[in-house]
């Protein structure tokens, strides 16, 4: 029956998901919202600081209760430029996204860089720019973007 119209049935899988940020995530986002700072959790056993913070060390499995402020200065480790949005529609202006690593932290954050494509390079120093206090809701989008230092 190749080439013939085939009988099909159309539908969707409708749902709205509400994810809790969790024990570690809740404090992480609260610190961003209330104190404009990035906090990680430290594992004394393995001498590792996790960013984003985790409740446990994935290597030794101890529970992590020590929180450390991460300096608001990082380095671009990887870059991509998006020309289409998440629906595949062409963007009016390309969007530069970077994976930024922070000194002393294991992990990193991915976000938009507020610069034209040609001005962003691996190794450049950037810092986190937050939304104004009243607009912050305790989510990752409380971070507006990275900007060059």
């Amino acid at each position: 029956m190749v080439g013939e119209e085939y009988r099909r049935w159309e539908g969707d899988m409708e749902a709205l998901y509400v994810y809790t940020a969790g024990v570690a995530g809740d404090r992480f986002f609260r610190e961003i919202r209330d104190n404009e700072r990035l906090m990680g959790t430290y594992c004394p056993e393995c001498d590792v600081t996790y960013l984003p913070p985790r409740l446990y060390c994935e290597t030794c499995f101890s529970e992590l209760n020590e929180w450390e402020e991460i300096p608001n200065k990082g380095r671009v480790d990887a870059i991509t430029v998006a020309y289409v949005d998440d629906k595949g529609e062409r963007l009016a202006r390309p969007k530069v996204l970077a994976m930024v690593r922070f000194l002393g932290a294991n992990g990193g954050l991915i976000h938009v860089v507020d610069l034209p494509e040609e001005d962003v390079y691996r190794g450049m120093e950037v810092e986190v720019v937050y939304l104004p206090r009243g607009l912050r809701k305790g989510s990752f989008l409380d971070i507006l973007h990275f900007k060059a230092i």
Partner: peptide, 24 residues
């Protein structure tokens, strides 16, 4: 009431299931 941090997501996928020979 937003006492804990949450994130929301609404999947928007549309499916078309082929009926196949017998159910067709």
């Amino acid at each position: 009431e937003g006492r804990v941090a949450t994130a929301e997501w609404r999947p928007e996928a549309k499916y078309a299931w082929s009926a196949g020979e017998s159910i067709g």
